[in-house]
Design a protein around this nucleic acid. Structure first.
Lengths: 369, 369
DNA sequence: CCCGGATCTGACAACGTTGTCCAGGCTCTA
DNA sequence: TAGAGCCTGGACAACGTTGTCAGATCCGGG
C-alpha cells in the first residue's frame, strides 16, 4: 500500500513515442484515419531490404524459393521495422479467416467457463482463433453479435442461443458459415446442435428422490420458453407420472430467476398446505438460492440440483446434483464445427450428451414431514 | 431423448446449398480458395439494384445523399441477395477495426468471468467487439495470442500476463496499439496496469488473524515469480514483522499449485514441530483445497483466503476472505484502454484497487493449540 | 559458345470496401 | 430564361496482401 513502484522511472520501454504523442494533437485522426499508427507494410520492408514485394511475402509465409541470403536480409528488415503482417488484408485476399465465433449467454456463469475453454482448445488445434462475446440472455443482442461475427467473416459459429428464432442466420448458413448450436436447439431453422439430455437427467434426478421415499417434490425452474427448462420440467413430470404421483400446482415454480423471487417460491412450497419434502432445482443459480433457504429451515428437506456447483461436496449435507459435462459439450460442438468446414459433415443433427447423477447427501435425505 | 426433430423435413433453411456440397468434392477449395462460399458483394447488389457501387455503400452505412426511392431499391436487393458487408475489407480501408483483444489466463477461473464480462460491457459501450483467448498460464502462448491479435489489428489489448517479459510488445506499442495490463504488471516494459492491492490486502488479512490471537500463521501461495504471489507474500511478511512475530520456514509453502501438493503442504504445516493455528491462503484455488483439509481436522484452524469463492458463506464456518472486485478491475482497465485510444491518456500508470476483507467466521476462530 | 532447364525474383491484378472528386440534373432567383 | 447553387449518383484509386505469370540469373552439357 505504501511502497509503490514509481511509474516514471527510467526503465526501457515506452519512451516518448512520437506517434503516441502526436495522436492526441490531431483529434481528426482519432475518428477516421489513424492508419494503425502508420505501421510498416510489406512494401516498406521490401524497400528497406532492397527486394521485391512478393519476396517479402514469401519470407513471411515461409514459402520456398528464397535464397537463404535474401531471406536473411528480409528478416533483418522485418525486425528493424517491427513489421507484422496485416491479417485483415490477408483475409480479404484469401477468403478464409481461420477464426470461429462463440456467442454465449453469460460469461460469468461457471457453466460456460469450461465450455468456452473446450471450444477454444479445439479451435486452437485447428489453427483458428476464437472470437467470443456474450448475449446477456438478450435475443436481440445475440443476433447483433452473431451477425457482427459473420460480417468479420468468421469461418464458423458456435451459438448458445438466447432467442428462439434463428431465421436471421439463413443467409449466413447458405453462404457456407458453419454453425453449431449448443445447450439449446436452434429455433425455426435446421442446424447442428449439441445438448445435454435435460429431459433424462431431470427425470432420473426426480426418480432418485422418489426412490428415497419422497412424494411431495417441488420443482423450481426457469421460463418454459427456454428449451432446457421445458425439457427439465418434462423430465420432472414424467418421473412423477411414472411413480403415479399427481403433481400439485403449488409444487411448481416456473419462470422466476431473480434470487429474491426464487427464495419466495421455495419458502412458499415449504410452508404451503401440502408442503414439499424435497426440491428439484432446475439450474445452478436456483440450486444456490435453495441451499440458502434450506439452511435456514429446521426441518431437513432433500435437494437435487441440475448442474454441478463448486464446493458442493463441502456443504453439509453435500449437494446431490445432475451434472452436465460442459467441457465435453464444448469439445463436441467445436469438433462438429470443424467437420462441417472439412466437408466431412453435411447433415444437421441433434446430439444429446448424457448427464451424470452425483450423490453427495442432500438427495438421499429421507422425507421429514 | 426419444423425440428428435427430423433433419430432413421440408422447412425452410438449410436446403441443399450447392456451394456446401461442392466444397467437399474439391479438396483444394478447403485449403486455399472457398471465397466465403461466394457471398454477394456490393457490386452484386449494385448491379441488381441498377445503381452505382458507392450508392450501395452509402445505403449500407446510412450516409446521407440517397433518395428514399433509391434507398428502397438498394435495400431490396440487399435482402434478396442476403448481402452482408465484409468487415475485413472495411477494416483494410478504414484502418480501424473497432475491436479489442483480451488475453486472459484461464477462462475457467471464476475470477475472470466477471472481469471478462466487465471488459466486454465497456467495449460494447464504445462500439467495439471483444476478441479473447486464454493463455493457460503459458508465457509462450500468451505471446502467440497477443501477437495474433495484433496481426488482426485490434485497436487495443487487455492482457492478464502469464509471462514476465513483455518486450515482444514494444513494436506494437510503438505502432499505437493501446495496451493495459491487468491483475499483474507488465514485465520489462512500461505500460498501463490495473491491479488489486495485493500487498495491502494480504497484510490486512494476516493482521486480522493476528488480532484474533494467532501467532503461528501459515502461508500457502503460488510461485513468487508471479507478481501477485510475491506481493501477497510480502504482505504476509510485513504483517508478521509488524507484530514482532518471527516467521518459521515450515509455515510457508510457495510455488505449489497442484491440489494434491497443496494438500500435502497444508497437512505438513498443521502437524509439524511448531504447528500453525491459522492459515492464510494465497489464492482461491488454494483456499478451496485448504477448506477440504481443514474439514478433516478435529482441531479448529482459522483461515483467511485471498479472493472470494462462491458459496463461501454457506460453509461451516463461513470463509473469511480478502475479496478483489474483479468487475471493477475489468471496467477500470477497459476504460483506460479507450482513454488511450481517445488520446485522453498518455502516461502509463499503475492503478491499485483496494481489496475488502469479508469476515464470515473462519478468520475469527481463536487459536486452538 | 549456346541452349535447356532449374531456380530465384518481381510486376501486376485482384480481393471488397470507402474517400475523393466530378458530372449531370434539379430548383430557385434575378 | 440564364446562371448559381444544391442534391444525387457514379468512376476511380487506394488500403495491404497473395496468386499468377513472366523475366532474370545461373548451371552444366552438347
Amino acid at each position: 500500500m505504501d511502497r509503490r513502484i514509481p511509474v516514471d522511472d527510467d526503465r526501457t520501454g515506452h519512451r516518448i513515442v512520437p506517434e503516441a504523442i502526436r495522436r492526441s494533437d490531431r483529434p481528426a485522426d482519432r475518428l477516421a484515419g489513424a492508419r494503425y499508427g502508420n505501421r510498416p507494410t510489406m512494401k516498406d520492408v521490401a524497400a528497406r531490404a532492397g527486394v521485391g514485394l512478393k519476396t517479402v511475402s514469401r519470407v513471411v509465409n515461409g514459402e520456398p524459393g528464397v535464397t537463404p541470403e535474401t531471406e536473411h536480409r528480409v528478416q533483418e528488415a522485418i525486425d528493424a521495422l517491427g513489421f507484422r503482417r496485416n491479417d485483415s488484408a490477408r483475409v480479404l485476399r484469401k477468403g478464409r479467416t481461420a477464426s470461429v465465433g462463440l456467442v454465449l449467454e453469460d460469461l460469468a456463469d461457471p457453466f460456460y467457463g469450461p465450455l468456452s475453454r473446450a471450444v477454444e482448445e479445439v479451435a486452437r488445434a485447428h489453427g483458428a482463433l476464437l472470437i467470443n462475446g456474450s448475449s446477456a440472455e438478450d435475443p436481440d443482442r445475440e443476433q447483433e453479435l452473431a451477425l457482427a461475427l459473420c460480417a468479420r467473416r468468421v469461418d464458423g459459429l458456435v451459438i448458445i442461443p438466447a432467442g428462439d428464432d434463428h431465421r436471421y442466420l439463413e443467409p449466413e448458413l447458405k453462404a457456407g458459415v458453419a454453425t453449431v448450436f449448443v445447450d439449446r436447439p436452434a429455433g425455426k431453422i435446421d442446424a447442428d446442435c449439441v445438448l445435454s439430455d435435460n429431459y433424462g437427467g431431470a427425470r432420473d434426478g426426480v426418480a432418485h428422490l422418489i426412490a428415497h421415499g419422497h412424494r411431495r417434490i417441488g420443482f423450481i425452474g426457469d421460463m418454459p420458453r427456454i428449451h432446457t427448462s421445458a425439457e427439465r420440467l418434462r423430465g420432472y413430470r414424467t418421473a412423477m407420472e411414472d411413480a403415479g404421483i399427481p403433481v400439485e400446482d403449488s409444487w411448481m415454480s416456473l419462470g422466476v430467476t431473480d434470487p429474491e423471487r426464487v427464495r419466495d417460491a421455495a419458502e412458499g412450497m415449504l410452508t404451503g398446505p401440502s408442503p414439499v419434502t424435497a426440491i428439484f432445482a432446475g439450474n445452478n443459480r436456483v440450486t444456490v438460492t435453495v441451499i440458502r433457504v434450506l439452511a435456514e429451515q429446521t426441518r431437513r428437506v432433500a435437494l437435487v440440483g441440475f448442474d454441478d456447483i463448486e464446493l458442493a461436496d463441502l456443504l453439509e449435507p453435500g449437494v446431490t446434483v445432475v451434472a452436465q459435462d460442459a467441457a465435453a459439450i464444448g469439445r463436441n460442438a467445436a469438433e462438429r464445427l470443424f467437420r462441417q468446414l472439412d466437408g466431412t459433415l453435411v447433415t444437421p443433427e441433434r446430439i444429446e450428451l448424457p448427464t451424470r447423477l452425483i450423490t453427495r447427501g442432500s438427495g438421499e435425505l429421507p422425507p421429514a414431514d
